[in-house]
């Protein structure tokens, strides 16, 4: 088994109102110097040894992310 992490982020050109809301709340809480926040999703998959990278990419592209609005990255975590 290996742990695979898939990060899914809204594309840069897609409005991210949730990230904007977080960014605008930070100064109100006294945190200065944060100019932008973008909010995404992180998936952690426990994967059998014989699952190849191509399969993981297909999982990310067809299910975990919507490529119309989101970018994704897949990486295997070192044990």
């Amino acid at each position: 088994m290996a742990r695979v992490v898939v990060d899914v982020m809204p594309k840069q050109e897609i409005l991210d109102p949730q990230g904007q809301a977080v960014a605008s709340a930070l100064p109100r809480l006294g945190f200065e110097g944060i100019s932008e926040v973008r909010q995404g999703k992180r998936f952690e998959l426990e994967v059998a040894a014989d699952v190849d990278d191509e399969t993981l990419s297909r999982i990310a592209e067809t299910m975990l992310a919507n490529p119309v609005i989101e970018d994704w990255t897949v990486r295997r975590e070192e044990a």
Binding site: L15, P17, N66, I69
Partner: peptide, 17 residues
């Protein structure tokens, strides 16, 4: 229908949240 690819584009969080 958008997720299924029958229609183009996607629906995202309302701009005003």
């Amino acid at each position: 229908l958008c997720e299924s690819g029958l229609l183009p584009g996607a629906l995202t969080r309302n701009a005003g949240l």
